[in-house]
Simulated assay, not measured.
Amino acid sequence: MKRILAVVSMCMFLAASGLALAKEWKEVRIGVEGAYPPFSYVQPDGQLAGFDIDIAKALGKAMGVKVTLVAQDWDGIIPGLLAKKYDAIIASMSITEERLKKVGFSHKYYQTPAKFIIKKGTMENFSREAIKGKSVGVQRATIHDKYLTDNYGKDVTIKRYGTQDEAYLDLAAGRVDMLLADSVALSDGFLKKPEGKDYMFIGPDLNDPKWFGNGAGIAIRKEDKDLAEMFNKAIDTIRADGTYKTIQDKYFDFNVYGE
């Protein structure tokens, strides 16, 4: 009886002091977007695929946990995490100071620059004067949206979209002059496709940490520090054993991890 009381007292002490007993993670629910090729997209058979999806599955295997993917629109992806709809987000989410106020992050699992694209022949050289008056499409509530708003909000008309695919459709239809997004997403999701043949990158690589953070990481609730550490170890594991490179080479012909 005394032993039971001692255990109960210890649990009460831990709870009162803010020290939670470590959770044993057997299943990790991961929020994904599914509308950001080549990182995540839905195949004709309805299955999720892409770099983010394969990385999520590989990390789950390295951690020895069951992974359940939960598709979620980008606009609600952080609220869904905080509401415990899932336990982590693997959706090409950049690690920024603004997001760190709301959620925790693993180390980065890839890092690529942002760029503008425009129809060939409509602008020879990129400059603030050249971009003035243009309509620029961007995915809503992203780092690209923040950068565009802060740096060109007074010079251009910003058109915000719920998904990157919607932005591609409007660019091809001539309803917007330019797009700003991740360079790899733009290349694979639009420029390499038939509808993108008349378009090109313009301007410099954009990677200032003030807006673009320190690479894409796995978002977790701040209290789940043990889960963040599990992801950190799993990232190291798949990079060391060749799994990461196998996944990378499936989608890209360059080092997507960065420096």
Rank of each mutant, 00 (worst) to 15 (best):
A141D: 10
K250F: 13
A49D: 15
A20V: 09
Q47G: 13
L81E: 05
T122E: 15
R99L: 13
T157G: 07
G31L: 14
K132A: 10
F190Y: 13
R29N: 07
H144Y: 14
Y244D: 00
L227H: 02
P44T: 00
A228L: 05
C11F: 02
T163D: 12
P44Y: 03
E24N: 11
K250Q: 15
Q164I: 13
V70L: 04
P44D: 15
I95W: 03
A172V: 12
K115S: 03
Y86T: 01
Q72T: 15
V8Y: 02
M230I: 02
G258P: 13
L100C: 13
K193H: 09
K61Y: 07
G133L: 03
K119S: 07
K154S: 15
T149A: 13
C11K: 05
G174D: 08
L14P: 02
D241P: 01
Y161T: 04
S187T: 14
K120S: 14
L59P: 07
L191Q: 04
D226H: 03
V184R: 05
D208V: 03
T96R: 09
D150R: 08
S135P: 12
D75I: 06
G133E: 06
G215I: 01
K84M: 02
L59N: 02
G80L: 08
E97G: 09
T157H: 10
V7A: 07
R99G: 09
D73I: 08
L227K: 03
G258E: 00
G242H: 08
S106W: 11
N214G: 00
Y251L: 12
D75E: 09
L69C: 08
G242W: 12
L19A: 07
A234H: 09
A62T: 10
A219R: 02
K108S: 12
V136Y: 07
R175Y: 10
V28H: 00
M12Q: 03
Y199W: 12
M63T: 04
D150V: 09
K225R: 13
I118Q: 04
E24Q: 09
M230Q: 10
L59R: 04
